[in-house]
């Protein structure tokens, strides 16, 4: 799995490509945490899952962990490009009750402005 990071002012966009499981969740954690630690200006996190082809419970824990950090610095998390399967996993994990979902990145950015 790859995680591409794009910073747009206060917003950090993480674009997933591949499969998010126990083995690959470490990549997601490290990439995002490094950027959050480095950049105080970053407030919000947008998770683009349009090219995320698989997720299991490891994704729930990893996303919740980033959510807590972003919330602690007063920011918001938004998920976009959610596929049916990934949606099921996040729903079971209770994440859709706390994290809003948008259809695509530009809508996510607009909703943060």
């Amino acid at each position: 799995m790859q995680v591409q990071l794009i910073r747009r002012k206060k917003n950090l966009i993480a674009r997933f490509r591949g499969e998010l499981d126990h083995h690959t969740s470490e990549i997601f954690r490290k990439t995002v945490d490094k950027e959050l630690a480095k950049n105080d200006q970053v407030q919000n996190l947008i998770l683009n899952m349009a090219n995320l082809t698989f997720m299991d419970s490891s994704g729930i824990g990893a996303i919740l962990g980033r959510y807590k950090q972003v919330k602690a610095r007063g920011g918001r998390v938004i998920i976009c490009g959610l596929k049916t399967h990934n949606k099921k996993i996040l729903e079971i994990g209770g994440l859709l009750k706390i994290i809003p979902v948008c259809s695509d990145e530009s809508k996510a950015i607009a909703s943060l402005d």
């Binding site: 969740s25 954690r29 299991d56 919740l64 962990g65 079971i92």
Partner: peptide, 10 residues
């Protein structure tokens, strides 16, 4: 380890 305890539920 950021486990959610949802494996068996899934």
């Amino acid at each position: 380890l950021e486990r959610s305890g949802m494996g068996f539920t899934i």
